[in-house]
Design a protein around this nucleic acid. Structure first.
Length: 508
RNA sequence: GGCCCGUUCGUCUAUCGGCUAGGACGCUAGAUUUUCAUUCUAGUAAGAGGAGUUCGACUCUCCUACGGGCUACCA
């Protein structure tokens, strides 16, 4: 019998959710949906030192914005609650004790300070310090201390940790859904801390394995940075006797900087001018801010489409896909093995694609918000007309104003280069004549003015380019924008004539 | 340093032993347009290097180089 697919996204609330984290969440979500399984959000807040207020809310809001729906989680609840590890703390100690009782782990009484200084002195000699089978008997641990001594130390309040007793010289064979078979010799691994008495909390490794088991997780899909700890996780499952029901693993390639070395970081975004986070973030303590895709004007569909293709593809040339299509097409064996450099230019291209698909009235409503802020009075109807006129030339809604300001306000100045090029010879006189012609026009619709003006140009054998560019200079102030007749219709007869008059007197 | 993972156009990638190596972004040129942009067309550009297996290798194996990750009482 196939077991029910249950996957989880398990971020740590230590700050804003990174774009790579969103991708991990997305792949988990797509996998769950495709297999009619469950997508779980588990908050891994076992590091009391690094906890950041607001980070959990940020994670939830980010996923909501992306359209990644959570089946079970801190806000949604579920049969396996609680989903916040800090609320599950009493669970973990028992499992840590089980490991000690089965001789797979042991108490260690050395303090972090002792270890740091020891590590430093060893490294000063150019050697590598590893807390493993070669040295563990040199420390105060339950491996060498008598049972009574261990109890006495614990009772008198000495701090302790539980460390995993990593086997010596054993080859661990693992399977990764993306990378295939992997083997590691346990002698290269160390005795990881699983539980710490200082805050009565487990470390990631213990909490993760215990919760994945308890929550009946079927597939662990996570970032490649976890690959080195996969042998430990295998060994933990084995020590608990859960090897036959452990989840399958898939380690995702990392997101790399657009240029240079290393993985994508907040600094890259700051330096190159693109967001690294889905939403804007304000650090609660420092007040430091980081821009977000939402605030930068990206559509969530576009954002999702873009990150979905970072490290995965459907195997054909299709690039524009919505969540339903992604769900249908997603496959772990089409996930790439190597890290993907992030390309901000392509991100923009995706948004312009989605811009064209967007409904005009929806876009217009967003545009109206900006117009209002600028003190521009505009009806929804008008905004829709403007939108349909300019959207094909934009990537973000924030581009709208720059592409349409001349519809809402007359030019106060005129582009010098365009003036030099077109406001010469007979053109000023021609504009005066054109003004007379337009003053007589009753029906100011684009189609009517267009045919009238074109006829006038033809019958008088006037140069089309000179006339139209001069008119554009007069009406817009520079050499850009959609069809002149559309613009004239939009601003109306009165305004058109006014602008011609103003330009003639101003440029005289 | 050690361990693990990876390596096709500048970037994201297709190819699962037969390739004249395909698509997209970007860039360049041309066409369309009254302008700018859009759009369309075309061009640019890749299998890290070396051995081996094979009739045949981008695809499989090994070595080297390079890149990435991990190496905390962080996740």
């Amino acid at each position: 019998m196939e077991r029910r697919v249950r996957v989880r996204f398990a971020p740590s609330p230590t700050g804003p959710l990174h774009i790579g984290g969103v991708r991990t969440a997305l792949y988990n979500y797509l996998f769950a949906r495709q297999h009619k399984g469950d997508f779980i959000l588990r908050i891994e807040d076992t590091d009391s030192q690094r906890f950041v207020p607001g980070a959990e809310e940020y994670i939830n809001e980010s996923l909501r914005w992306c359209g990644i729906n959570i089946d079970e989680g801190v806000n949604e609840g579920g049969d396996y609650a609680p989903y916040r590890q800090s609320e599950r703390r009493e669970i973990y100690l028992k499992y840590a004790m089980d490991l000690i009782n089965s001789d797979n782990a042991y108490y260690a009484f050395d303090t972090p300070e002792e270890l740091t200084s020891l590590r430093e002195s060893v490294e000063a000699k150019g050697e590598v310090f590893a807390y493993n089978y070669t040295v563990r008997t040199e420390f105060a641990t339950s491996l060498i201390l008598s049972k009574e001594e261990v109890e006495e130390r614990i009772n008198r309040g000495d701090q302790w940790v539980v460390r995993f007793k990593m086997p010596e010289n054993e080859i661990i064979h693992m399977k990764d859904l993306i990378r295939g078979d992997i083997a590691v010799n346990t002698s290269t691994l160390d005795d990881k801390v699983l539980y710490k008495s200082a805050d009565s909390l487990p470390t990631y490794h213990l909490a993760n394995i215990v919760d994945d088991r308890l929550m009946e997780i079927s597939h662990v899909i996570r970032g490649e940075e976890w690959l080195p700890s996969l042998p430990l996780h295998y060994l933990l499952y084995r020590s608990f006797g859960w090897s036959d029901i452990q989840p399958e693993f898939a380690h995702l390639p990392l997101l790399l900087k657009p240029t240079g070395k290393g993985k994508l970081s907040k600094r890259d975004g700051d330096k190159m001018g693109f967001p690294v986070f889905p939403l804007k973030w304000v650090a609660p303590t420092t007040g430091e801010t980081a821009r977000g895709y939402r605030e930068d004007g990206y559509f969530p569909e576009s954002f999702i489409n873009m990150i979905a293709l970072l490290g995965w593809n459907p195997g054909n040339d299709q690039e524009i896909m919505n969540m339903e299509q992604l769900t249908e097409l997603f496959s772990l064996d089409k996930v790439g093995k190597s890290g993907a450099r992030f390309d901000p230019e392509k991100a923009k291209w995706f948004n312009s694609q989605y811009m064209q698909k967007r409904d005009n009235s929806e876009l217009a409503e967003s545009f109206l918000v900006e117009l209002k802020e600028r003190g521009v009075d505009c009806s929804l109807d008008m905004a829709i007309k403007v939108t349909s006129m300019i959207k094909e030339r934009t990537t973000f809604i924030s581009d709208f104003w720059g592409e349409s300001f001349f519809i809402f306000e007359a030019p106060k100045s005129f582009d010098e280069k365009v003036v030099a090029k077109f406001w010469k010879g007979e053109n000023p006189i021609r504009m005066a004549k054109l003004r007379e012609l337009l003053a007589e026009v009753e029906d100011f619709s684009a189609s009517n003015t267009e045919s009238l003006v074109h006829n006038w140009i033809k019958s008088n054998e006037l140069p089309m380019g000179q006339i139209m560019n001069s008119l554009r200079l007069v009406i817009v102030g520079e050499s850009k924008g959609p069809s002149m007749f559309d613009i004239c219709e939009m601003i109306g007869k009165e305004e058109t004539l006014k602008r011609i008059d103003f330009a003639i007197s101003e440029l005289a």
